[in-house]
Nucleic acid binder design. Structure first.
Lengths: 191, 191, 191, 191
DNA sequence: TATGAATGAGCTTTCATTCAT
DNA sequence: TATGAATGAAAGCTCATTCAT
């Protein structure tokens, strides 16, 4: 067995745990998910859980970070594919993708909607510092970075909390009705 | 003892419980607050809790509804005192008051920030239907009511979630720094 | 209001409690019936219960005695109507009536099946000592009373426990199948 | 430690619980026995109880089944030792042994007297199907099996409920006085 | 690494009973 | 007699965590 294969096998249980925990967290909420259920679904022994995570909170945070970053990374990737009609539209398209992602997977939304932030956004842009700076500059349209960060944060707050209200609670209306206003609002915020 | 006095005494226990529960919920979070502690702090017997509430969740919802409404009602009242410099400013002033309220009482913010909605807002405006319609008309500045409701909802979402990030997490910056942008954003949304 | 009417009114609550308790006991079993439910169904206050009964056990015993006696009294009455084809058949007919009664009302059976006894039987025959002795003499067919009492007891034990098994548990067969054997068995016991 | 040793240790806890529960159930009745007491007497932790049984009812049923079967198995074994004076007497001897067993251990009787059945009887005969069929044929004295089963059931009902009345309640007389009649009754039922 | 039996503190909830009215 | 709010002991049950294997 090659070292890499061994490494893979070593991490296998951790991933089984993460995956089982994620499913249960979105199914019934983190606080009503017992460690017992997680290990049962993961097919590992109870003690094994404590080999990889200190407690339920740790695995929850792990998942939230991972999934939040994933959402943004995916939205970013999708936005790259869709050629922005004009400069400055990119952020709008990303938001649009985030909303659509949540619409397709409301349970995921319920789990992470409080946790989208610029920090994750920045991490998601990731990669070399060079490319990152380029992108940020492109997105920011020349505005001072510090201010731009705040605006992006606010935009993410708006998008995720309105998505939550509209998709999960359908309050004050469903996402179909709310989305045009939401996108228009984002446009105004980043104007 | 007159019936009213008895009723008052009855209500008193319920209020003692609500007050004790509120303190504990904001101090240590709802899910780490034991019923035991609530009744101890309220100075009533454990059974009494179950005379008034089915479980911890019920008292929590009760509190969230009550406190959320209170925040909006207070902001509204405060806004009335401050003469709006010009028409259409009223909503801005209300938001400003909400932010200030949260700034003074971050624990309250932590408890209810997910629960501000147009529904509560409308209820808080309360009173006679006459006056209510007047106010709404005034606030809406002639826009169709349905659209206005959605805008107010979005504004509340933005204000409460940005307040949460800025005040509790100081992310991406403290409320001092974020507030001007937030108010400016609100101005844009309701423009 | 005449004294008798007053007395009636006085006893009214007690009867309401007994009736409510009986319904609940047969519906869900004595040990899962709370005093709270009894008073709620009876439409009286909780304290009132303790005015008439010391605890749940007391009302249960009261009911068992009352209902057991009723079953036997009714069976006896019904037997009197059906002219026994020949002397010595009377006990058989009574047993037949008891079985039929239980078949019509299995819940009652579940409540009292452990409590049919000669004591109740004797009480049910009730009335003047004269008539009682006559009946017993008639039933006993000249056997010494003491022995006859034991036989009747055993017959009642057999009838009620086989009814219970057959009607409630359908074990080893339903009452339709078991009844002929049961009646035949009783005939042999009293031969 | 070998698996078998581990298994044994595991089984031990379960048996400690069963034994403790049995003692308490016969001492003070199942419904007044707290899980707390059971685990204290068994010398295991509370959680361990719930590792092996869902609730008090489950352990109770477990015990009733086990002890009922034991009573019949023992009576059967004892009957085998006592040479039946003549064919067809075997069932009488078994009943006699059951009565004696109950007389020696009234608490056991109080716990299980509602639960003696042909099903247990059949299981107790157990062992190879060959021997079982032989025994049943021998016992049944050539009668059709189905009818024989019903008769044995009725006999067991009679024996256990009369034992209960006579031994526990001494009603209508003690077991000394009742036993001859009971045995005579059984003789008639199986005639 | 991996296991899973065992733990026991701690939680929620029930409910018989009291007593001021 | 009658009430029903209040009580608080006691019960059932959960579950994160440990540890010997």
């Amino acid at each position: 067995m090659l070292p890499s294969a061994l490494d893979q096998k070593k991490k296998r249980k951790k991933e089984l745990l993460l995956s089982a925990a994620f499913d249960l967290f979105v199914e019934k909420g983190p606080s009503s998910t017992a460690i017992d259920e997680i290990v049962r679904r993961a097919g590992v022994a109870k003690g094994t859980f404590y080999l990889y995570f200190r407690d339920r909170n740790e695995i929850l945070n792990h998942l939230i970070a991972e999934k939040s970053a994933l959402v943004i990374r995916e939205a970013d990737a999708a936005a790259l594919k869709r050629a922005p009609s004009c400069a400055g539209e990119e952020l709008l398209i990303i938001d649009d993708e985030v909303v659509e992602r949540f619409r397709r997977d409301p349970k995921l939304l319920a789990l992470i909607y409080k946790n989208l932030s610029w920090g994750l956004f920045a991490k998601a842009l990731g990669g070399g510092d060079e490319g990152k700076r380029d992108l940020v500059e492109r997105l920011s349209g020349g505005r001072p970075l510090e201010e731009f960060v705040k605006v992006v944060s606010m935009v993410l707050e708006l998008v995720s909390s309105v998505s939550y209200s509209a998709i999960i609670l359908e309050e004050p209306a469903g996402i179909e009705e709310m989305k045009p206003l939401l996108i228009e609002s984002v446009r105004r915020l980043i104007a």
